[in-house]
Amino acid sequence: MTGVLAYLAAVWQVFRKDIQVEWRGRQGIPVMLVFALMIVFLFNFALQLSPDLQAGLAAGLLWVSLAFASTLGLNRSISLERENNALDGLLLAPVDRSAVFFGKALGNFCFTSLVGLLLLPIVSLFYQQNLLRLPLAAVLLLGVAAYTSLGTLLSALSIQARTRDILLPVLLFPLALPILIAAVEATRGLLSGQTLAELSSWVYLILAGALLFNAAGLLFFEIILEE
């Protein structure tokens, strides 16, 4: 196999393994989904807002619930590698270690995206907004790509810390804030009838974040995991 093909095969294998483990254990996606739904329900019943205010809240609530649920998924994804020291098994493999990053990031992206897409009709129902639109799904996928690539990188950074379970959200939320703000603004804009072209500055900001965090993973993942 040539270098590029071997690299892509390794990315695919790490991703495929994460899917296989999730299928067997079913401990990641269901927990993320239930957690996200709880946030949606709680806010809906706790705030008792008028329909007008509810509509304004939908974009923010979608992203807050998704960010919190995704953090659970990221913790689960890295704890899977801590168990039995499986991460060492990946690091011993004769492939560039950034392939492990992209494989893990791809898995985290797929799990969080699935939860996000399942949330769309539920948030639509509770907050009386039609979120089932293609441009909105595109923004959601782009935002999740940026958020989970940063999360994958930071979860690797926190793996050797004693306080790793609380360290991830403490590091992730402030660094992901620009991405989350851009995603909320783009979603809100789409809900108020603007087009993707009119919201291009927010979309480009999310895209830049996704590229930046993936580039950081490519360059620094090996260094981060070194003892």
């Binding site: 294998q13 790490v14 899977l80 168990e83 039995n84 499986a86 060492d88 098994g89």
Partner: peptide, 19 residues
């Protein structure tokens, strides 16, 4: 052992063979 608890012994070995 550097293996995944939820996968079978064979699935773990296949994973490493592919990797």
């Amino acid at each position: 052992p550097m293996v995944y608890q939820d996968l079978t012994a064979r699935e773990n070995l296949v994973h490493y063979a592919r990797l």
